[in-house]
C-alpha cells in the first residue's frame, strides 16, 4: 500500500485537512471518537487506504475508492495521511 521507495524518503505526514486537493494520499492514522472511527473504516477509510481530497468547503470532499465522502473539518483534522504527490516534487 505504501509508495515505492518510501523508506528512503523522509516520512512526511500531515492531517487530511492539509492534504493538497487532487493529490492521492495514504491514510496513516485515524484519531477520533470510536463510533466515527468504526464508521470511517466501514466506509473504506481505514489505515492503509488510498484517499484523495477532491474539494474543500466547510467540509472536505474526499474520494475513497470511488466513493465520495463529505467529512467535517473536525473529523478530517484527526486523520493523518502520507501524501504521495509530494514525493515527485
Amino acid at each position: 500500500m505504501t509508495a515505492p521507495n518510501s523508506r528512503e524518503l523522509p516520512v512526511c505526514t500531515c492531517p487530511l485537512v492539509d492534504s493538497e486537493t487532487g493529490s492521492a494520499a495514504t491514510v496513516v492514522a485515524i484519531e477520533c471518537g470510536e463510533s466515527e472511527a468504526c464508521r470511517l473504516r466501514a466506509l473504506g477509510l481505514y489505515e492503509g487506504a488510498q484517499v484523495s481530497v477532491v474539494g474543500k468547503r466547510h467540509c472536505l470532499l474526499v474520494d475513497v475508492s470511488g466513493t465520495r465522502l463529505a467529512l467535517g473539518a473536525d473529523l478530517a483534522e484527526g486523520i493523518t495521511v502520507r501524501p504521495q504527490g509530494r514525493i515527485a516534487s
Binding site: G33, E36, T67, L69, A70, L71, L75
Partner: peptide
Amino acid sequence: VRPMLLELPA
C-alpha cells in the same frame, strides 16, 4: 452534534 460524515452517492 455528530461530526459531518456523509456519503455522497452517485
